[in-house]
């Protein structure tokens, strides 16, 4: 099964729409609550990153019987130093993002924690592609 969603950069009010839809779908498929939470928390963090750091993005979700793959691809500034960005507490988030309750530099580490495989590709000036795989029976 495949689904896709669009994310508008800068629009915090809509961050979470894709995660919310994916949560409903996984629930219908009787995936366990703890696995659903991992998948949607990781996706939500990725959505927030597009809203906070990029211009726009697309979410593609591919669900197979044993796993889900989530790809979040954006048009944006890209990440110049991925290992640095992965460090807990590293953040370039604006004051406006922090006022929304985000920007603690914990998003990427949290995405790693909540997925079984995380892959980040990024090109400065073009955009970022985050791929997360999570198995249903760990």
């Amino acid at each position: 099964m495949e689904f896709s969603y669009h994310i508008e950069g800068g629009d915090f009010s809509k961050a979470g729409l894709a995660s919310s839809e994916v949560k409903k779908i996984l629930k219908q498929l009787n995936v366990s609550a703890s696995v659903i939470k991992r998948v949607v928390v990781a996706l939500y963090e990725a959505e927030v990153n597009v809203v906070a750091h990029a211009y726009e993005g697309d979410v593609r979700v591919d669900i197979a019987p044993e796993r889900v793959v989530v790809v979040v691809e954006d048009r944006g500034p890209g990440i110049p130093d991925i290992p640095l960005a992965m460090q807990e507490g590293y953040s370039t988030a604006s004051a406006a993002v922090r006022e929304m309750g985000f920007g603690a530099g914990m998003g990427l580490p949290n995405m790693r924690k909540n997925s079984d495989e995380l892959n980040i590709e990024s090109e400065v000036g073009k955009g970022t592609k985050v791929t997360m795989l999570t198995r249903f029976n760990p």
């Binding site: 919310s20 949607v40 309750g101 985000f102």
Partner: peptide, 13 residues
Amino acid sequence: ANVQVIRTAEMSD
């Protein structure tokens, strides 16, 4: 108090 607090709760059960 913003919508993201509710979204966060939704994702976190």
